[in-house]
Amino acid sequence: MQIRGRSAMALIAPAALLFTAFVLYPLVRGIQLSFTDAIGPNGGAFVGLTHYVHAVSDPTVRRALTNTLAYTVVVVVVQNALALLVAFWLFRQERVRDVVRAGLLLPAMMAFVAVGYLWSYVYSPLGGPLNVVMDALGLHRFEPVWLGDPHTALWAIAAIYVWMFLGYTATIYLANYMAISPSLLEAANLDGASGWRRFRHIDWHLLAPSFTINITLSVIGSLRVFDLPFIMTQGAPEDSTQTLSLVIYNNSFANYQFAYGTTLAVGLLVLTVVVGVIQATLLRRREADLA
């Protein structure tokens, strides 16, 4: 059915209004706020680039930035590598596939709040289950205070994210596997390709669409990591679990430094866009190479 121009406008209007009022306007307003001295919802005299200059030399912000980037790289790589392996495994084990997939998806159905408190208990130095297991395995010497040691805290949290979303990522890879025409995979089998070689030369190429989706999703999700550090560590110890989103939240809503908070938010937006563009270019080039 051809919809006329004026009707089209009327149909789009409600969604556009909603999106403009509560996403686009706040986005623009945030950029504007970052050039003022607003504290809480009050004030707002123009102060130019003061906050940006301050942000660049703020040690907590620098630490948050390096933490966020390191965390993103590790989570994206580990999560996707493991998920690919699991999906490959699930694809071949048809009998247990549905049950195992449901089990692996369960952690992703839990609220971050619940996951955060549960793992605080798991990692607890006072009778926490993880240390109970390590004691039983005779690994007592290798038990740090997982969330209290600046060398391990961020990675202890990263491990939880991987735990949560492994099944989610694997489900996307598996859906891709199952969409591949069986004759293609059969041909690969007849050619005698197997194991790592088959994966490297055949599956890897056919999985390009899900690879693009998963990398995009995990990068976007990791760059804005907030909930677990917020619930479990509040950035401690020694700022080792400080992330950009956490710093934004604490400046805006714990200290009511709205202007500084939005300045950092603009920084996060720029980072997200830059990483997004680089990633889209690389992934598109890769898909074109493979095609």
Binding site: F19, L24, Y25, P26, I220, I248, S252, F253, A265, T272
Partner: peptide, 24 residues
């Protein structure tokens, strides 16, 4: 264009709009 504007919203982290959203 409208479609592209909507879709570009997919990548905006909530923290970027959180503070002004509170104000709105």
């Amino acid at each position: 264009t409208v479609y592209q504007v909507f879709v570009s919203g997919l990548t905006i982290p909530i923290f970027v709009v959180l503070t002004p959203l509170y104000e709105v």
